[in-house]
């Protein structure tokens, strides 16, 4: 085994993993603040990227202006999703809400396909394609940049959940009825969590779009994000971070060493295996909350 190749796959895998976490954080955010499993994060990530493109190419705005504008638009998309689709479902069985988020996912995929078609479009963030040299290792600059942004977002959200608003959101996720009973506007809290998830989706969408181009395949990040979110524990921000790292490293290493043997596709196999094993062995993930049972 080639140690340098192993190390290089691991480091690049870790960076990619952090970018997975960036998508997964949208799932964690919503679960942590309203106990809703959000299966629409994949297409929200894609939609965010498309909106950045629409603003930058359609209006001709520079990319660094298009991104904040798109973030603003997506904020209201998140609010809209709560208002139109989820508000009526508050207090209903979680399976209905789950199916609703899946419906949103499908709707957004079909909608973006209708508007923008299936051809892949590039987003350029002006990051050089030349690799970064770290000793003997070649590091992908775009992944490195994405990983740094992901880390910054995690820091931000960890702090956010300690603020008063963050505590209120966690309270909502614990018990809707009790939250209502102390005057918390549950609807507004849920809307805020979707808005934040939509904002993160935009950032994730731009970063991933710059790496692989913007097309329907961006929505497939949902699968990675679900794995990362479940592995980390659905309500743990730090868990999503570590799970992303873990998945990225395992995937990267497995990819370099198994792909030649299996003829490709080993990454998705690893991904599926991790999701299934997590649910079988440790359903609440690495750091997820247990339901507290007093004896």
């Amino acid at each position: 085994m080639d140690a340098v190749l192993l190390l290089e796959s691991a480091v690049n895998g870790a960076l990619v993993g952090l970018m997975y976490s960036l998508v997964a954080i949208g799932i964690v955010l919503i679960y942590k603040s309203s106990s809703v499993p959000n299966l629409a994060q994949g297409s929200m990530t894609m939609l965010g990227a498309y909106i950045v493109l629409a603003i930058s190419t359609g209006v001709g705005a520079p990319i660094w202006l298009a991104i904040p504008l798109a973030i603003g638009v997506m904020f209201f998309v998140g609010i809209g999703i709560e208002r139109l689709a989820l508000r009526r479902l508050a207090g209903r069985p979680v399976i209905m809400i789950l199916m609703m988020t899946l419906g949103i996912e499908i709707f957004l995929r079909a909608g973006t396909m209708t508007i923008w078609g299936g051809t892949s479009r590039p987003i350029s963030l002006g990051i050089s394609d030349a690799p970064l040299f770290l000793g003997p290792l070649l590091i992908n600059r775009a992944y490195a940049f994405g990983a740094v942004v992901a880390l910054a977002m995690f820091g931000l959200f960890v702090l956010f959940f300690r603020t008063r608003t963050g505590v209120v959101l966690r309270a909502i996720s614990d018990d809707y009825t009790a939250a209502w009973s102390v005057g918390i506007s549950v609807e507004r809290g849920v809307a805020l969590s979707w808005a934040m998830a939509a904002v993160v989706a935009t950032i994730g969408g731009v970063l991933w779009g710059s790496v692989q181009g913007v097309d329907q395949s961006l929505a497939l990040l949902l699968l990675k994000a679900v794995t990362v979110a479940v592995l980390g524990g659905l309500d743990s921000i730090g868990g999503a971070l570590l799970a992303g790292l873990l998945l990225g490293i395992v995937e990267g290493v497995a990819g370099s060493f198994l792909d030649p043997l299996l003829g490709g596709a080993s990454r998705d196999l690893v991904d599926a295996a991790m999701l299934i094993l997590t649910i079988l062995i440790r359903p609440h993930g690495l750091f997820g909350r247990h339901d507290i049972e007093r004896i």
């Binding site: 614990d174 009790a178 102390v182 918390i184 909350r289």
Partner: peptide
């Protein structure tokens, strides 16, 4: 609630994953 009606629910229904202090914080949004 803003008008001044507080309802302590049957079965206590505290926010279990929050600390008591955070429970109090959540109630004074």
């Amino acid at each position: 609630v803003k008008l001044g009606i507080a309802h302590v629910l049957e079965g206590r229904r505290v926010f279990e994953h929050l600390t008591p202090e955070e429970n109090l914080v959540a109630a004074s949004a």
